[in-house]
Amino acid sequence: MISMFIAMASASTFMPPAATQVAKQLNHLYAFMLISSVISFIILVGGMIYFVYKYKRKTANDKTPYISHNHTLEFIWSFIPFVIFMACFAWGAYIYKEMRTFDENALEINVYGKKWVWEFEYKDGRKITNGVDANGKLEPATMVVPVNTPVKLLLTSVKLSPEDKAVLHSFFVPAFRVKQDALPGRYTALTFTADEKGLFQVFCAEYCGTGHSSMMAKIKVVSKEDFDAWVLGEEAGGAPKEMTLADKGRAAYAKWACIGCHTLDGSPSTGPSWKGLWGNERSFNDGGKAVADENYIRESIMDPNKHVVKGFEPNKMPTFKGMISDEDITAIIEFIKTLK
């Protein structure tokens, strides 16, 4: 029993540090799998080596027994692997569920994957991008988050310039055991709760071309007090206060003339009001339904006639595809979230 625990502890030696609860749970599962596979390996390969040694050919016409099958044995060696595989599956699915459970009060940060940098945008409007150090070398962007606080990342992939093409990236934090692809034209989400302070490496795990292997970033986990201080801009790394993300959204609402058809007070105009829109279940003229989340709002802006809200006319709202920037869409979404 004790030796089993020692084995478990050392099984994760080659894993990166585990800085979240999920990562620690995963280490246990990993240790279980490693131990089961070492035992199976010893049975299979050890057995093979033993047989090869024991039943070496002795004479040119050795006789061998005619053994064509054995139902009991065959049942055993199908059933035991089956049980182990199912245990791995269930355990893995359980941890996965934890990984995908989003806390409602999580600190939300928007993450943009660009060729070949990561950018982070906080709700208070603060944007963190790559820096350049004294030697002219690229310094990866560093996301700052408080310890023991659920964080939700909203990822998307954006273009670097109008001629550029947005491609897939994948946000990978080994110490948190999380990974999520960032897709162009869509939002995906990721959550973690770091329970250790420190500086953690972020990689891009989805091949994205020339700069793929240098597309890195850092996550700095600090105490809650340090985080609050950083938010106030007292620490050196903190940028001066700008417009909040929701303010940027309000500005975009006016700039793109959404204001002409969408009210904020609940009264319908040419289009439905945005008040109470967020998280609400929408019904469409064609009988379909959907919950208003990030991807729904994005789709309503880019492809308004795909789903027409019940009681409203199609072809009234123009598409903004190709005009509006990803940053503006994200800001508008944030603005709509505040219109409770």
Partner: peptide
């Protein structure tokens, strides 16, 4: 043949690490 059995045993078993969702999230694309 024996080499195959040795290597394939390892290959097959590590497949289970990748079929298990939570571990695959870490190992995927590494």
């Amino acid at each position: 043949t024996l080499g195959f059995m040795f290597i394939f045993t390892i290959g097959g078993m590590t497949g289970i690490y990748l079929a298990t969702i939570a571990t695959d999230i870490h190992f995927h694309d590494t």
